[in-house]
Design a protein around this nucleic acid. Structure first.
Length: 350
DNA sequence: ATTGCGATATCATGTGTAGA
DNA sequence: TCTACACATGATATCGCAAT
């Protein structure tokens, strides 16, 4: 269904906090196949997973022996308990038959004391956490020094805390799912959905990626570069000494300085080849005249719209903040800010 | 300590475009 | 025609800091 304002949808999503998305088994299998050896003898905890619905649970239960797991624990958030289906805590150990343990006293929130206790017991956490709580979720994993493989939205890369972890090489993207759309089953009561298959509603969100701190093959593959640096083709930002690059594949092979690349660059990121310097944020592409007197922004169709003078002046005058707002010069009149840019440097040619 | 207010960060989203 | 990718959007909640 087509809507007039995309902002309306964004805003709704911001408020709704609908987080019951069930990952398909096929997507789990596609990623987990790269980590098999690393699960041997480990305690795996899926802390956002109802075993009746979760394919993470199904995957680990079915592959318990072949992976050589020591123990599998799942807990789920019990927002609206359905009679007879309460199973917030589930444990599986060794070759014992599957059986539920004593139920949790609390609601199964991953932040609850009970769940943190289980987290401490675990070696590895694998799940698709609520995106609306993504930062909190990751912070908790890092705090407890867990190995993890979790799903998230590609925009989370630009969240301050998340980016910090990526920059410090404490977290990176998984092997599969390069930010493409994938199907998730959603509860019947969700009003908007992408399509219905066999009577079940599915969503098809964009930019889904895996985040992990496990070693993945693509992280040690070198990105092959073929373009040569050309001053005209790669303009510099007005207030930061870096060139702008619109597509990852266009990164020049011979530029030694800082380069601003799209966030999707992370799918090709090899820390031996590149160093991440910072994040350029693109908010407010206001385009004042050079005196900053009459700020306005240029819309896609070329028309002007009045802007916010304070935002504008601050953005332009805020020279170089490590993670500030950078502008690129189109010509002497206009300034155009690209979307978020990861600032990188090629380590191999310095 | 508390308030006030400008600045900043956010969105399981939507659109446009290029290329398969 | 379809998929993958990069970018766009602005109301609102929260942050941060100065003034009380």
């Amino acid at each position: 269904m087509k809507r007039k304002s995309s902002n309306e949808d964004l805003h709704k999503a911001n408020v709704a906090k609908k987080d019951e998305f069930y990952t398909q088994l096929v997507d789990i299998e596609k990623e987990l196949k790269y980590y098999k050896k690393q699960f041997y003898g480990k305690v795996v905890y899926c802390n956002c997973d109802d075993p009746f619905e979760s394919n993470f649970f199904k995957y680990f239960a079915a592959n318990f022996n072949s992976l050589g797991l020591k123990k599998l624990i799942t807990t789920s958030y019990n927002k609206s308990p359905i009679a007879g289906r309460q199973l917030p805590l589930f444990e599986m150990e060794g070759l014992k038959p599957i059986k539920p343990s004593a139920p949790l006293k609390d609601n199964g929130d991953f932040r609850s004391e009970e769940c943190i206790k289980l987290l401490k017991e675990a070696d590895i956490v694998v799940t698709n956490p609520p995106f609306s709580l993504f930062r909190e979720y990751v912070t908790q994993l890092v705090e407890h020094k867990k190995k993890f493989l979790i799903m998230g939205n590609q925009n989370a890369i630009t969240y301050k805390e998340i980016f910090k972890l990526i920059k410090e090489n404490k977290m990176w993207l998984g092997q599969s799912l390069n930010g493409k759309n994938i199907l998730f089953q959603i509860p019947d009561y969700y009003e908007s959905y992408y399509k219905i298959i066999d009577g079940k509603k599915y969503a098809f969100p964009k930019g889904v990626v895996w985040f992990t701190n496990f070693d993945v093959p693509k992280r040690s593959e070198e990105l092959v570069l073929y373009k040569k640096y050309d001053k005209k083709e790669y303009p510099k930002f007005d207030n930061y000494d870096a060139i702008n690059i619109d597509r990852t594949e266009q990164i020049p092979m011979d530029y030694t300085g800082v380069m601003g690349v799209p966030i999707t660059f992370l799918h090709k990121y090899n820390p031996d080849q590149f160093e991440i310097v910072g994040l350029g944020n693109s908010r407010d592409n206001f385009t004042p005249n050079k005196n900053y007197q009459n700020p306005y922004k240029i819309l896609r169709d070329g028309t002007k719209q009045n802007g916010n003078a304070i935002n504008c002046v601050l953005a332009i005058e805020s020279k170089i903040k490590p993670d500030g707002i950078y502008y690129i010069s189109d010509n002497s009149k206009y300034l155009i800010a690209p979307y978020a840019r990861i600032l990188i440097r090629n380590k191999k040619i310095i």
